[in-house]
Every structure is written in C-alpha cells, then in structure tokens.
Amino acid sequence: MAQIQVEKQLPPRKSSLSQKTKNAINGYLYISPFFLLFAVFGLFPILFSFYLGFQKWNGLGEMEYVGFQNFKLILEDPLFWKALGNTMIMWVLGTLPQLLIGIILAYALNSALIKLKSFFRISVFMPYVTSTVAVAIVFGIMFNSQEFGLFNAILGNFGIDPVSWSTSEWGVKMAISTMVFWRWVGYNTIIYLAGLQAIPNELYEAAVIDGATTRQKIQYITIPMLRPIIIFTVFTSTIGALQLFTEPLIFIGRTYRQEGITVVLYLYREAFANQAFGPASATAIILFLIIIVISSINVLVANRIAR
C-alpha cells in the first residue's frame, strides 16, 4: 500500500516502477496455487507423518506419544523384513531383465534397413498404455496355479508339473516380476532407442574404417554414449520397484500372503486393515529413508562411472 502511494507522488518514474512491481505481484500470484495446494496436500501430510510415527493412534480416539515404540515394533516384525526382502528380490527380478532386454531391443530397432519399424515400436510400447491393475488381473489369471492356467498349460506341453504360482515362494515373485517386466520393457526400449538415435553416425563410420567389429562398436561407442540414459532408467525403475504395490495386491489379494507382500503393501495393511496409523507412518518413514539411501548409492555409483 505504502509503496503504491509513493509511486503516485513520483509521476515520472511511475510506469517503470509499477510495471516491475506488477510483474512481481503477478509472478507470486501465478505460482501460488502450487504452493497453497502443496502446503495442504503435500507438505503438511509429510510433516504429520513424521509426527504420527511417534504416536499410537487408531484414527479415531486420542493420540498417545510412544517414542520409538512404533519403529521398534516394525523392525522386530519378521513380516516387515520379509516384505523388504521380497521387494528387493522383485526389484532385481523385474528390473534387471527389463533393462538388458530393453537395450537389446532398442539396438535391433535402431539397426538400418529395418522395415515395419513403426509397427514394432507401437507394439512394444502398447503394454505401457495398459493400466497396472489390468496387467495384474490378466497375468494373475495366466499364472493360475491350476493345470489349465496358461503358463502351467505351456509348461505341461514340456511335461513339467503345474507350478503353484500364487502360493509358492518363488512362483509369486516370478509372476509379479513378469507383470512389471511386461509393462515396462517397451517403455525402456523406446527411451534407449531415443538415446541410440542421438549418437552421431560418424562415430560408427570412423570405427568401421578402423576395422572395429560389431562387438567393439557396442562396447566402445554405444554403451558409453548411452550411459546417462542407462543411469536414468536404473534410477527410475529402482524407485518404482521400491514402491511396488498394485501387482502384489491384485495377485495375492486381501490375504497379504508373506510370499508376495511388499513394503508398500505392508504399509497399506498396517494403516487400512489394522487401523494402526502409528506403525504405518513409521513404515512410511523407513521406506523414505531406504529410498534416500538407495538413491544416494545410485548417484554415487553413477558419478564414479561417469568419470
């Protein structure tokens, strides 16, 4: 207010000064919706999670401060460690093949003289447009433990006995990892393809003149040039894998079977099946710390390799 009055007293400078102030006011105004919404639905919930982690609360009655009791409860629960172990195993099973095969497919798609290129591109990408719920339902039925389940029927052709996919230790993990793999491999393929297309052709031509073999070209040109994109995909698929939820929930259902429970599913069960909001918040905090640690390792390793 005071500022505006001052401007009025100094007519010659009015327009430039007020334009600048107006810009600033508009600037704050235009970015304010994000910060207001984030304060209510983002920042406050996060801070409140840290508070809830130290309380005993069922969502209705009084809260009671319990110190580190919730963390102790979680860290002494064998099911939490089982969930963490499952998450790690499915991270490796789902992510590693996905990235390797993604690179191979991208390399194939990028080779010259390939016809039907756009057909192949569209078809490998199609799974990504499908919702995770749909993928989990479809593969859940394919991985039916009876002998008529699609995968068991195929195995049966080779004389292999039906696998109880939904109840065995490795069956559950294989099934869930397959769902993750199927939905994401094409997505990563296209990302790698974009990276490959950005590599200048002259590099390969020079290598051919120097007598390089295909393997040498891949080893000394393709992989180093793709490195930033590989790091990016490892990073995003790792974070995605640590948050695995939909596939196991749909596949193993409300039983929360210990062969397939993941950290986020454990959190969901604590909060919305057991009404234990304190331990559930403690789980969320632990998951957050795990993600920070793994991301930092990722960044460190990436920096080391980049040199």
Partner: peptide
C-alpha cells in the same frame, strides 16, 4: 523427489 507414500496416511 519425495515418494508419494510418505504422506499417504495424513492425506
């Protein structure tokens, strides 16, 4: 960078 599950329960 914040995982969406962190604030899930208060949300």
């Amino acid at each position: 960078m914040i995982p969406p599950q962190l604030g899930l329960i208060p949300q």
